[in-house]
Amino acid sequence: MSEFIQYTLQGLAAGGFYALSALGLAVIFGVLGVVNFSHGACYMLGAVLSAVLLAELNVGFWAALVIVPILMFGFGVLMERLLVRWLLELDPLYNFLLTFGLTLVIVEAVKQRYGVSGLPYQVPAGLGGQVTVGSVNLSVYAIFACLFSVVVCVAVGLLLTKTRIGMIVRAATESPDRTRALGINVGLWVTPVFGFGIALAGLAGVLAAPTRAITAEMGSNFIIILFAVVVIGGLGSILGAVVAGFLVGLVEAYGIAYAPTYAQIVIFVLMAIVVLVRPSGLFGREEVA
C-alpha cells in the first residue's frame, strides 16, 4: 500500500509536467491552429536553462522558476513573429513541419554547446529528502512539484474563465473565424498566446530539472507522450489537457512500477481505448455536422 501511494505521488508529479506543457500546447493549438512539435524541445530548453543559470550565473531554482518562463515567453514571441506567423495562412501541416525542423535545430544546438552527457542539477535546498506520513515515505520535491503544477493550472484556469482576456482566448479557441466576425482582432492575441504556451513548457522544464536527467534529448520522448495527452484529453480542450496530463502521469507511473516491460505501451493503449470509445477525447466536443 505504501508503495502504491509513492507511485501515485510520482505519477502526479510527472503528470504535473505533462499537464502544464499540454495546457500550453492546447492553448496554442486552439488559438493558432498550430500543432507545436517543438513543445518538447521547449520543455528541454526550460530544464537546460535552469541548469545553465545555476552553473554559470549561480541563479538558483526559485529564481529560475520566474526567470526561465519569462525567457521562454520571449523565445516563443520571437518564434511566432519570425517564423510561425508566415505560415498561418497555409495548411497547418506547414507549421507542424516548421516546428519539427525547429526541434531538430534546438536539440542539435544544445548538443553542440552542452554535449550529450547531461547537466547536473540538485533538488533545491528545503525541498530535498522525504517526509513520513503515517508509515509512508514521500519525496518532498514530488509533493512540491505536484502542488505547484496544480496551483499554476488553477491560476491559468482562473485567468481563462474569470477575465476578459480569458473569454477572448476561449472564444478564439473554439472558432477563430467566428470570433473575428464578432469584432475581435484575434491576430492581436496570437503572439502573446504563443509566447504563453511556450512559457508553460519552459516552466514544466524548470520543475522537471531536479528530477530528470537534463539532456538535449529529454524532450523527444516527452513530446510523443504530450501528443497522447492532448488526444486523450480532447484536442483543443483546455480542461481535458490538464486532466489527461495528470491521468497519463499516473498511468505511466503505475506502468513502470507494476508492468515495467509494458510501461511504454500502457499510455498508448489508454489512448487507443479513449479514442475508440470517445473519438473526440475525454473532454473534446463532438464535431457538429
Binding site: 473569454m167 477572448i168 476561449r170 472564444a171 479557441t173 473554439e174 472558432s175 470570433t179 464578432l182 469584432g183 475581435i184 466536443r285
Partner: peptide, 14 residues
C-alpha cells in the same frame, strides 16, 4: 460558444 456562458456570449463582442 459552448465554452462561454450565455452572458459571456453576449458580452464578448465590443
Amino acid at each position: 460558444y459552448a465554452s462561454l456562458t450565455v452572458a459571456e456570449n453576449l458580452l464578448l463582442p465590443p
